[in-house]
């Protein structure tokens, strides 16, 4: 059951489904189409206004920002100077943790996804159910338990501790989307490698990994974004300044610095850069992840 559930979910949207072959044709005039574009642009402008406002506020001189004009006519970068002074280290910390999470997620998820897709274990349906349910466990439950465990293990306020915890945002998701992709690998190509003398592990590395490249990229991008966005574990598992992800930096900023909105918003803009880069450069992978995973 779970099996069908996953593949059903995978088939929901574009991971597998090709571009729509035919669209409603004929009836709509060119003018109608452009009117739709107009409506679309207006809707999008409303939706994205807060993001515009974030950028606008970040370019105002510090202090009086909230009485800012609608446009940053005289952009002032002092907010960014302040943000980099205060939060530069935290941005770097977030970057290290996110890259670590990506590596850990892929190392753990890719082999497991392949096993769940291609090996005929009897308990696969149970395993898939466990993975789906684990995604539903509230983060605060995990944080409650990890705090005391980390306290005993000395992992509080440490990069490895946060990487391990942040991977919990990504690993179930990664296993599910990688498995969906790996279901489509024809066993014959793996077999061909085996006949040439490759062991299971080598066949996995030299055949499965390359053909699953796109799904691996999607999983990696989302692991990065989930970890970069993590707030809960940053909040609960760190208390020192040495290891402080930028999300927590922003939270503490808005607790204490509300007078200096330009610095707060400059930090917010800097923290949005990964999402924006990924949306521009890796659009198709993001689209595959949103719909293929159907989970976060």
């Amino acid at each position: 059951m779970t099996d069908t559930l996953i593949s059903r979910r995978g088939s929901l949207p574009p991971l597998t489904s090709p571009k729509r072959a035919s669209m409603r044709t004929g009836t709509r005039t060119r003018i109608g189409a452009f009117a739709s574009t107009g409506i679309g642009v207006i809707v999008l402008a409303i939706m994205l206004f807060p993001i515009y406002w974030m950028v606008n506020t970040s370019l105002q001189p510090s202090g009086n920002t909230l009485t800012a004009g609608l446009f940053p006519l005289n952009p002032d970068f002092s907010g960014y100077e302040r943000a980099i002074t205060d939060q530069g280290q935290n941005l770097l910390t977030s970057l290290i943790i996110s890259v670590g999470t990506v590596v850990l997620t892929l190392i753990i998820s890719a082999p497991a996804a392949y096993a769940l897709a291609q090996f005929r274990f009897r308990w696969i349906n149970v395993a898939l159910m466990v993975i789906i349910v684990s995604q539903m466990i509230p983060g605060v439950v995990i944080a409650n338990a990890l705090y005391s465990a980390y306290n005993d293990l000395g992992l509080l306020n440490s990069l490895p501790g946060l990487i391990l915890a942040d991977a919990s945002h990504a690993i179930p998701f990664a296993i599910l989307i990688l498995r969906t992709a790996m279901l489509g690998i024809p066993p014959s190509i793996v077999e061909a490698a085996r006949i040439d003398g490759a062991g299971l592990v080598r066949a996995f590395v030299s055949v499965v990994v390359p053909v699953s490249r796109n799904a691996l990229i999607t999983a990696a991008l989302f692991a990065f974004l989930f970890s970069w966005s993590d707030f809960l574990f940053a909040l609960t598992l760190t208390s020192t300044e040495e290891v402080r992800p930028v999300t927590l930096g922003i939270y503490q900023y808005i607790g204490t610095q509300v007078a200096n909105w330009s610095a707060v918003m400059a930090t917010a803009v800097l923290s949005s850069i990964p999402a924006i880069i990924l949306l521009v450069l890796a659009q198709k992978f993001i689209a595959a992840g949103t719909t293929g995973g159907a989970v976060k």
Binding site: M23, R24, T25, R28, A33, F34, S36, T37, G40, V41, L44, M47, L48, P50, I51, W53, M54, T57, T65, L66, L225, W228, S229, F231, T247, I250, Y251, Y253, I254, V258, W261, V264, M265, A268, S271, S272, A275, I276, L278, L279, Q283, I286, A287, T290
Partner: peptide, 30 residues
């Protein structure tokens, strides 16, 4: 509907979901 820029607008629309939630919260607070 089929109209120019459909795919482009649709992918831009994902942005609020991709931003760290705490960034959105801070922005909305302002």
């Amino acid at each position: 509907r089929r109209f120019p820029l459909n795919g482009f607008l649709r992918s831009l629309m994902l942005l609020p979901w991709l931003l760290p939630v705490i960034v959105s919260s801070a922005t909305w607070r302002s």
